[in-house]
Design a protein around this nucleic acid. Structure first.
Length: 271
DNA sequence: CCCATTTGACCCGA
DNA sequence: TCGGGTCAAATGGG
């Protein structure tokens, strides 16, 4: 409504676009790796592009005068970050020289649990000296398409409304053709009563319930604090420049559309 | 009935 | 041996 909200919206848009750029660049990187002829320089360039995007994400994150909704703490490679500075722009160039075929790893702290991929939970562990359990997700298409991407989600002790989401490996699946690239704005700062119809994605569901398990009757504030909003702006944005990019041919390998159905069930809101 | 989640067991590296 | 990560049978929901 006001400038603050507008800024937040703009930032989320930029962040979303950066993430899309990251995904697309990752796909290019994978394509290049498949045709390993004389594309060495191109691969190197792609890696630099990825590093640049990651740096930009970090910089954008540090530029947060208002309410933080998503911040990137560590980027790729060995999780070196989250130590000295939190994403200033000290080296905005080639700090990411050799990524190689190693699985990329980066961590995001966010109140948002969704991303553009469909995940399937395969485990949950109580980690030593931590309050909240860690959940393990793999790509839904791990076995159908051999996608190696996984992610780990853990609620932050310092800020229980936030989740530490660690992405490990890049997606090699073709879900992008099925799932539109829209990032919903899910905040835990807003309260929705139980009577409210929450079409929550599977991730949210699982994380939600584990929150409840850790309440132990301690009457803290109510959880289930999520709201889906202000994604109409994104919808329009993604309409024109995403159809061009992702609306192209898909390898019809058993993309049954069910996997993405839960993740994108909120889409009806934005149309 | 199919698919995702749950959850204890199992595996493996430090 | 311990702890983090993964497996897989049981369970539940659509």
């Amino acid at each position: 409504m006001d400038i603050a909200c507008n800024n937040k919206t703009i930032k989320l848009k930029i962040m979303d676009q950066l993430l899309q750029g990251h995904e697309m660049t990752t796909k290019v990187q994978q394509l290049l790796s498949q045709h390993g002829s004389d594309l060495g320089p191109a691969k190197d360039l792609v890696e630099k592009i990825l590093g640049s995007i990651n740096d930009t994400i970090s910089s954008l994150d540090s530029f947060e005068p208002i309410s933080p909704s998503a911040l990137v703490t560590a980027v790729e490679g060995s999780q070196n970050a989250s130590c000295d500075n939190d994403g200033k722009l000290e080296d905005s160039g080639d700090s990411h020289k050799k990524l190689g075929p190693k699985s990329e790893t980066w961590t995001v702290e966010s109140t948002l649990l969704e991303d553009t991929f469909s995940w399937r939970k395969y485990g949950q562990k109580q980690i030593l000296n931590t309050k909240f359990p860690r959940s393990y997700f793999r790509c839904t298409h791990k076995y159908t398409q051999g996608c190696k991407a996984t992610k780990q989600v853990q609620k932050l002790e310092s800020e229980p409304r936030m989740f530490s989401i660690t992405y490990i490996g890049n997606h090699t699946c073709n879900t992008n053709e099925v799932t539109p690239k829209i990032k919903p704005c899910i905040h835990h700062d807003e309260i929705i009563t139980d009577s409210e119809e929450i079409q929550s994605p599977s991730l949210m569901t699982s994380m939600k319930e584990e929150e409840e398990n850790h309440h132990h009757g301690s009457s803290t504030e109510s959880d289930l604090q999520l709201v889906w909003q202000e994604m109409l702006v994104f919808e329009e944005e993604h309409h024109h420049h995403h159809e061009a990019v992702y609306g192209c041919g898909e390898t019809s390998t058993s993309i049954n559309g069910l996997d993405s159905a839960d993740l994108w069930s909120w889409q009806q809101f934005s149309v």
